[in-house]
């Protein structure tokens, strides 16, 4: 899924997964942590979307306006029209998030995005309830749909991991890998994945470079006992880029299984002297022309102990851990 464009299209993240996987929880989490980023959230229906009433500024038909510049649209049976409307907004959002319906194939939605020049697929995140995934995966009606949803993912989030023991998470992870060997697999609770992992937000390095990024906010209605065994620590690494580099080759390497990182973003100069933006979301990467005046360098995020960078960057002169 390589991509190189000369414009800076609107990034779109597709959230997939069966009913009960935690898609809506993730959406709420992204909204609560938007931190100034103006999100357009497209949902099939407003059904279970419990937006904090204090956030709602107004509702007109299928569009809810939220404080901070975010909006929520219900697209009903016409996602493509909703995307076109979003694209035509006078004051477009910074990022679009699509919550796909429980039986939709998120990859198909990703393909449909190639039909809109001004949008780009940032990444596909498929959620699964780790406590019910394997039961659904043997359901005679659902098995192949669940597998196809997992197959489409760049990042697979095994949600509700506090409901099962560590060995079960390992077993499910192993099974998921047989379905989609290339996606990154992240166990979590309450669908709390940091916005910067899922969205096109510049990843930040924290002071100790090792923090539970995914668990930066526990929902108020949390009733389950958080088991620290399941807390996922994420590690961020900053890379310096001091020499021109083949940007596509570097992006490919960062998105490889061997590297295993979850998310990278940064700027490099290519051999022709052009500044490029590199985006990596799990197995997916994109290279676009960079805005002017940026400093070269990348920030990479991965699950602590689950990825490695040294060997990857060894093949690129001028790329080093900062």
């Amino acid at each position: 899924m390589p991509e190189h464009t000369t414009t800076s299209p609107l990034p779109v993240t597709v959230i997939g997964g069966y009913l009960g996987a935690g898609k809506t929880t993730l959406i709420n989490h992204l909204l609560n942590n938007a931190n100034g980023m103006r999100l357009a959230i497209l949902v099939n229906d407003f059904g279970d979307l419990a937006i904090d009433a204090a956030l709602i500024e107004s509702q007109e038909g299928d569009v809810i306006s939220l404080s901070g510049g975010c909006i929520c649209c219900s697209y009903g049976n016409d996602l493509q029209a909703a995307l076109m409307d979003t694209n035509k907004m006078p004051d477009p959002p910074d990022h679009v998030v699509i919550e796909s319906s429980g039986v939709a194939l998120p990859g198909a939605i990703g393909s449909a995005l190639t039909l809109i020049r001004a949008m780009r697929l940032h990444g596909i995140v498929t959620l699964a309830d780790v406590s019910t995934l394997q039961q659904h995966a043997t359901d005679k009606y659902l098995a192949d749909t669940i597998e196809r949803q997992l197959r489409d993912a760049d990042i697979i989030v095994l949600n509700k991991s506090d409901l099962v023991c560590a060995s079960e998470i390992d077993a499910v992870t192993t099974w998921v890998t047989t379905i989609n060997a290339n996606a990154r697999v992240v166990p979590t609770t309450y669908a709390t994945i940091a916005n910067m992992v899922v969205l096109d937000e510049q990843p930040q390095t924290s002071a100790d470079e090792q923090s539970p990024l995914a668990l930066n906010q526990q929902p108020q209605n949390a009733v389950r006992q958080n088991n620290d065994n399941h807390t996922q620590h994420f590690k961020t690494i900053k890379l310096a880029a001091t020499q021109p580099v083949d940007s596509a080759k570097l992006a490919t390497a960062l998105a490889s299984d061997k590297c295993g990182l979850l998310r990278a973003k940064g700027f490099v100069q290519n051999q022709s002297g052009n500044l490029h933006t590199i985006q990596v979301v799990g197995r997916r990467w994109a290279v676009t022309d960079a805005p002017t005046g940026v400093d070269c360098g990348l920030v990479c995020i991965g699950r602590d102990g689950q990825w490695q960078i040294e060997e990857i960057i060894a093949g690129f002169d001028g790329i080093s851990i900062a």
């Binding site: 009913l19 429980g102 039986v103 194939l105 659902l142 749909t145």
Partner: peptide
Amino acid sequence: GLWYIAPEQ
């Protein structure tokens, strides 16, 4: 083919 509705729905 494809499901156009989730069984639970």
